[in-house]
Simulated assay, not measured.
Amino acid sequence: MGMSVTISPAREDDAERILKLQFLCYQSEAELYGDYSIEPLTQTLEALRAELASGSVLVARLGDEVVGSVRGSVEDDGSAVIGKLIVHPRMQGHGLGGRLLRTLEDLLAEQGRAKRYRLFTGHRSETNLRLYRKLGYEAVSREQVSNRLSLITLEKIAPAPTEPTNLVTSA
């Protein structure tokens, strides 16, 4: 019998595992754009620990292994900025990224702080763009970062707060 993947808030002792997974997952993005100096590949453990302390960070676990993560924080204007949605390559294509994103959206909505969700991805990241559009995000802007990269910002309106969701989910 196989194990199920659970989603829960990240713990402080998850930082190293998240950082290692992030480094693995962003290799394909770096290759796609020919840029290995992107922030997810150069982020320090200290910077990640600061994100854990200041924002909402979720992890997906298969047993004790961290196989996915996503981060979010709400700005003063009510925009929930979501970033670094990562899923281990062997776990991709099974809906885990969507589950992580929806769980984070629900968490931020429950807290009653988020008016809209905002995230971004590169213009060549078709898999990411497909997922975000499937989940209701729409492109609101495009910024030319370099001759190889344009960042597409996507948003969707947050629903009104509802009853709290069970923060630990499994499938």
Rank of each mutant, 00 (worst) to 15 (best):
G63A: 02
Q22K: 12
S141V: 00
E31L: 09
L154M: 15
I38Y: 00
L104G: 00
K20D: 15
T6V: 13
K20I: 12
Y36P: 04
L108G: 06
H94V: 08
E143V: 02
R71T: 06
E51I: 13
G55M: 04
E46R: 11
G63K: 03
Y137W: 02
V168Y: 12
D35M: 06
L108T: 04
A109G: 10
I86A: 05
Y33L: 03
S125D: 15
A10T: 08
G136L: 11
I7D: 01
Y132C: 01
E105T: 00
L24M: 12
R17W: 06
H88F: 04
R116E: 06
V57Q: 02
R102Y: 07
A160L: 12
R90G: 09
L135E: 03
L58N: 08
R124F: 12
V59I: 09
P9E: 04
G97W: 05
V87P: 06
A60Q: 07
F120Y: 15
V74H: 05
T127W: 14
Q144H: 14
N128Q: 12
E105H: 05
G78Y: 06
V87E: 04
G93Q: 05
D14I: 04
L108Y: 03
T165L: 09
V87Q: 06
S54L: 14
F23P: 06
L167C: 11
H94D: 05
L108P: 07
R118E: 03
Q111E: 15
L24K: 14
Q111W: 08
G63R: 04
L24C: 13
L131H: 07
P159N: 08
E126V: 14
P89I: 02
A158W: 01
V140R: 01
R11M: 14
T42Q: 14
L104D: 02
R148N: 14
Q92F: 01
L149V: 11
G122T: 03
K84Y: 13
E31S: 10
L119Q: 03
G34P: 01
E46M: 07
T44Y: 08
L131N: 02
V67H: 04
R61G: 00
V66Y: 03
L149R: 12
E16S: 15
G63Y: 01
V81Y: 11
